[in-house]
Design a protein around this nucleic acid. Structure first.
Lengths: 231, 231
DNA sequence: GTCATTGTATGATAAATATCATAATTTTAA
DNA sequence: TTAAAATTATGATATTTATCATACAATGAC
């Protein structure tokens, strides 16, 4: 990870649209000056569980995973965050230390804002408070409701779901490179690595997808959708 | 359900402590006057999925379940809310309609505040905004992290977990009446009704619990905790 | 009270998934 | 470049869980 010289280009930053609408110029200026951009290589740890929460972090580019490790070292992926998602959504206003970790799945850039300053902005600017609440509420909701959706599915349904998630939500392409290895997919959907691999092989044998190592091409998207919906 | 004459006793209400600390007297007065208390009998529907979100609701007394019904009519319980929990936490600031339902598990009283007014309070009072955010953030966190905890467990672990949840979190007693029937327990932990029943029977045969219909007595709590932790 | 319905209970069996074993392939590190 | 480690892959088997069947108890409607 390395810090990038502050270019103070907040006005062009996409995140601005999301919640800076209601913030006065002088505050944006301050955020702009105090913000820190950090560049991470694929595989770098962005947040380590247990560390104190001191920043408000959003993802400017790249892709990251939020996950927990249990005592036995087995991981569980909570969500995948893409650009302009908040990376430290959970706990940021309700806890002092992280209870999950974040790692870069692709080369990523985060924008780190001082949490105390954000809190002050919330205190002094109600519209800002409301819009940030809306955003946070939305992401938590999504995590909760999608975990219920996935919970109902068998392994075929879950693997199909995850493939469509990457194709539709992340890459918007039928052909993409999986940012997770098979073990991580298993940690995401709550099944074993072997069965994830087996299921992918079956999809391949059935002509639903093509597999080139980490690259996936979805051949029969309709079928995959059916498996996801009814599996 | 019936509405209760407004007694304007907000000053004594426990919820006040939680987040009214920062609200000026005149606002509390207004909330007090405009709030509506509703009384529900066990089994009454408090919130129906699909209906518009118009109130900010918290539970004054009783016990409720938040749940979703899928297309096939199968239910999934998201969480159990106890007094002074927000009942419509999810989505309240990020959506216009409920995407889950709420039903009373015991006779319950809710306090309903006008959502627009709450939003105005957030706009005009930053401290209030921050404390309500903290509360909301906390509950979402808990749901997400506990669902990960449960996901790891086998059926023995999950049933043990749920029994301890009621004993420790809800009733604070080794002897309690289950507020859920066996099917609902299954919907909570994501397993089938038969296997929940079977597991309870096994716990009974092993002398870990006693079962008197809906009443449960935990005999060997240490053992139950072990099963929950390692199962 | 009686009957229908729902809930609890248990067994037998089927299906899904995990575990264990092994090997080929790919990636990483020396 | 080569050896070691990790990842992908597949088969065999064990375990877990779901499904189906049946019975009895409890509850509610009439």
């Amino acid at each position: 990870m390395k810090e990038v010289p502050n270019k103070c280009d907040c006005k062009e930053c996409d995140v601005r649209e999301m919640f800076y609408e209601h913030v006065e110029e002088q505050h944006i200026e301050f955020v702009c000056v105090t913000k820190i951009e950090k560049v991470f290589k694929k595989g770098d740890v962005i947040i380590e569980a247990g560390k104190p929460i001191e920043n408000f972090i959003y993802l400017k580019s790249g892709l990251v995973k939020l996950y927990k490790h249990d005592e036995n070292g087995k991981g569980q992926i909570i969500m995948i965050a893409k650009p302009f998602d908040f990376v430290n959504l959970l706990s940021v206003f309700s806890d002092t230390n992280y209870n999950y970790s974040v790692t870069a799945l692709e080369d990523s850039v985060t924008c780190n804002l001082d949490l105390d300053h954000i809190k002050n902005m919330i205190r002094t600017n109600g519209e800002f408070a409301l819009s940030i609440m809306k955003k946070i509420s939305k992401v938590s909701d999504t995590i909760i409701l999608e975990s219920l959706t996935v919970r109902k599915k068998n392994i075929h349904g879950r693997v199909a779901y995850i493939l469509l998630f990457f194709a539709d939500n992340i890459y918007e392409d039928k052909y993409f490179e999986l940012p997770l290895n098979r073990r991580e997919i298993a940690e995401f959907i709550g099944k074993t690595t072997e069965n994830v691999i087996r299921t992918l092989s079956e999809f391949r044998k059935d002509g639903i997808i093509k597999i080139f190592g980490k690259f996936i091409e979805i051949i029969d998207k309709e079928k995959l959708q059916q498996i996801s919906d009814f599996g």
